[in-house]
Measured scan of single mutants.
Amino acid sequence: TEYKLVVVGAGGVGKSALTIQLIQNHFVDEYDPTIEDSYRKQVVIDGETCLLDILDTAGQEEYSAMRDQYMRTGEGFLCVFAINNTKSFEDIHQYREQIKRVKDSDDVPMVLVGNKCDLAARTVESRQAQDLARSYGIPYIETSAKTRQGVEDAFYTLVREIRQH
C-alpha cells in the first residue's frame, strides 16, 4: 500500500529536517529553504509493509500558489509548527483551512506536530497545542528532528489516521 503524505507549515519550522531524519536517519543542521522535494521510503507499520511517498513543501509565502496542487494529491498532512515560534503555531489554522477548502472536506487525515521540542526556549505550551488538536479532532505529537524523538511516531500516526479514514 502506498501513502501520499504531505508536510506543511511555516518556513523554518523543520519540515525538511523531520523528513530527512525519518528517511535518512540524520539531522540536517543548516537551513536551506525548500521549494519542493519528495522522498520515498518502505516501512512496516503495524505489520503492514507500506511505501511512504512524502512531499516536503515550501513554507515560504512566495510558493503558496503551489499549495493547491499538492493538497489535492496528498492523502494525509503533517501540519508542523516549531514550539519556539508562536507565529508558526498561529499559521497552522490557515494551512488547515486551505487543506479543507482544496479537499472540499472537513475530515482530512492530519496530525499536528510541534517540532524542536529539544529546545528550552518554548513559547507554545503543550497544552495550547493539545487544545488546538482536540478542537480539530486530530492527534498532537511533539518531535525533535535533532534527537529523533517522536519522528517515526508522527509519520506513522498519520498513516494510521489515513487507514482509519
Rank of each mutant, 00 (worst) to 15 (best):
E142D: 06
C79Y: 06
T143V: 13
R127W: 14
V113N: 08
D68Q: 09
I138H: 11
K103Y: 05
F155A: 10
K41R: 06
G76I: 13
D53S: 01
C117R: 08
V159R: 09
R67A: 12
V124R: 11
D118K: 12
A120S: 07
D32S: 12
S16I: 00
R163H: 01
E62V: 09
L18N: 03
V43D: 02
L78G: 01
V7Q: 04
E97T: 06
F27N: 00
M71L: 07
R148P: 12
Q149R: 09
V13E: 13
T73L: 06
N85L: 02
L51G: 04
D32H: 08
L112G: 08
N25R: 03
R67H: 10
N85P: 02
I54Q: 00
E62K: 15
Y70M: 15
P139Y: 09
E161I: 07
V151K: 14
V124E: 13
A120G: 13
V124D: 12
R101Q: 07
E75A: 05
I141Y: 12
E97I: 03
Q98P: 02
G9C: 00
L51R: 07
I23Q: 12
I23Y: 13
D118E: 14
A17T: 00
K15Q: 01
T157R: 11
L132F: 06
D53Y: 09
K41D: 14
G12K: 15
Y31L: 14
D46I: 11
M66V: 10
I35Q: 02
I99L: 08
Y3R: 14
D68F: 03
H93V: 08
A10K: 15
K41E: 03
Q21E: 14
I45R: 03
Q24F: 00
L52W: 05
S135C: 15
R101G: 06
L158E: 06
G11Y: 14
Q98W: 09
R122Q: 13
I162F: 09
T157S: 11
D53N: 05
Q94L: 08
N85W: 09
L22T: 15
L119S: 15
D56I: 00
E90V: 07
Q21W: 15
V44G: 05
V113W: 09
T34E: 00
A10E: 04
K100Q: 02
V28E: 09
A133R: 10
S88K: 10
Y136H: 05
Y31M: 13
D153M: 07
T123P: 12
G12L: 15
R122H: 13
V113G: 07
L22W: 08
D107N: 04
Y63C: 15
S16E: 00
G150S: 14
T1G: 07
R163D: 09
D104Q: 06
H165A: 09
